[in-house]
Design a binder for these strands. Structure first.
Lengths: 192, 192, 192, 192
DNA sequence: GATGAATGAGTGTTCATTCAT
DNA sequence: CATGAATGAACACTCATTCAT
């Protein structure tokens, strides 16, 4: 049982790495297999087809993000602090797992991210929605749609991580400015 | 000469439409050609190869965005008003040209968007950078890197247009909330 | 022992059903196994490989046909009547076992039906040859090669069953005409 | 134009030869291409997919048979003689074109020969139906459904050609007997 | 310049067969 | 004996690119 799961995990990890390095296109099933140390056919034991593999990666990714951020959410803190933690933890997670960030960024605007998939609930979106719902209930942030709020915040974190990576070797200074963005967003969404 | 340009334009337009409808994958050169009313081989008269075509589309797109937004920028207005116009015009442009928005969204996180390309200046980025530089100079917005500011704002506009399209038929109410996001961002970036 | 035979039978039956429904192509070993309620590997306990399975089905089928027709052959009747019974019983058998008819029809003209296999005697061909040999001996049918006669008659029964199935829902009237074919053939082969 | 048709013809001829030699299974598209002296991709210029190629072959084959037999049908002769010519010409055609006979024999009982295809009229079936309709009109053969009659006769010719090929090197004598089958069938269908 | 048939390397996928459990 | 995950050769098919017309 654990062997099976290990194999599925290693296929997903292999695909994640390849997608980050070569983009969605440069990721043939045969290469994923080779990288994962399995035969090409084996992938089809765990996934119906390549699309299903991509969706499988998405589901894995979404679960990992949720796990990391939710485990570090301390409900006893004031919401402002929880927000900054949310922001910091999500950023950290992406920086610790660049292949996940690379995949997620590409996935969101790809045709793989179908309407059907977006409509279905997923653990990460549910957590994020509930998180901002909480902030609204507690009167700490503006009464906006929590779905909109979570997309807004997550998109900004995504962008900033991307900018950081692009600027990595250029300007140390920018990193400080980028960290200011969280304040900027908080100022925007906090209740008046 | 103008015939040649017309043909190039129609190839680009055809590709834009197909990419929006079928994503980057579902856009073979032969289909672009058919859609544009030319032979497949003709595309190689105007573009070296498919990558060059995609880059060509990007350059076209970037020019169109810049033209639309810059033409509507009124330097005589106070910067706050210019910011809201910038936001509104960029949003309008994307909503008037969904295929451009669809392309741009996919392009930004794709492997086509190489480091080289990002390093090279382009008219739209230059305009946006100068725009926010202006706001800083005039003391109306915080002293942040204008490059960072423009990416931040543009990313948010992109996201919101995308959210609007996803929500189009669901919640009328959300559109109002989405329009509030511009205030939220302004509150974040305006000088204290 | 009987368990083993049961398992072999159920594998054969499963393959027969699948071949009738999906043709020779649409009949992977894994599907035969699933349909038979055994694991894919188990099939290789009973058959050396897929070709051997197909041959095994053929041998089973040929035995079943022979059993049905020979059991209903009454040697005490005049040969003309025996001929009509032969025709009727073979037709009935195919109509009761459409998957056998479907398999046999496909098998006969397939590359599985090798020269080697045709040269080897099989119970059904031997019975049929002997049957027509009998008719010749008794002076009731023309002095033709009994092998040729049996192929001729069997081919015609096969075709007629096939036509009946194609016409099943179209023309009731045709069925009567099709039943006349046996007279037509008898008129052809009976001794002058 | 004629070059294009030549290429299509050579693809069809190549596939016909391979199907006769290796059966339906042993006929990969790549081998058909190699045999025809074209690239694999070229086949898809002329046929949508492999199924379409098989159907294309069928249509070609059916046209060739019709052409050969109809060109040699002499309406001025008495129907009995026309029937014997029909039989002889069809037999000759198959013996001159063994790959067509091999293909047709396999095709008829294969899943490629769908209900849809059988329902659609084709030149050969139409000719054969009209031929036997003629015989009925002229009062020379029994009042049976001409569709049934033509299938019956064609099936018998097919079988006999097959038997001849199997027996080719064994018994010279049989050929004479096989030629008698036409009389046998004529005796069966002729008007009383 | 424009065409579109031809190319063939590359891709996703299937499936007969094996073998560790 | 039975299992079914794993294999990898083989397949159908796609598509960026070329080039003779």
């Amino acid at each position: 049982m654990s062997v099976l799961l290990d194999k599925k995990k290693s296929i997903i990890q292999s695909a994640l790495d390849l997608i980050q390095e070569h983009g969605f296109h440069g990721c043939p099933v045969s290469m994923v297999a080779k990288n994962a140390g399995v035969a090409a056919g084996t992938i089809y034991t765990y996934f119906e087809n390549k699309d299903d593999l991509i969706i499988g990666i998405y589901e894995h990714v979404v679960e990992e993000i949720k796990k990391y951020v939710s485990e570090r959410d301390d409900l006893s803190l004031p919401f402002k602090e929880r927000f900054y933690n949310y922001w910091k933890n999500l950023t950290n997670f992406y920086e610790l797992n660049p292949s996940i960030h690379g995949f997620y960024d590409q996935f969101l605007n790809s045709p793989y991210n179908s309407d059907d998939l977006q409509s279905n609930p997923n653990v990460w979106h549910e957590f994020a929605n509930a998180f901002f719902e909480d902030g609204i209930q507690q009167g700490d942030i503006k009464q906006l749609n929590p779905v909109v709020l979570s997309i807004l915040v997550n998109t900004n974190v995504n962008s900033i991580v991307r900018i950081k990576q692009n600027f990595k070797k250029k300007l140390e200074k920018n990193n400080m400015e980028l960290n200011e963005i969280s304040h900027l967003i908080w100022d925007g969404i906090k209740a008046d």
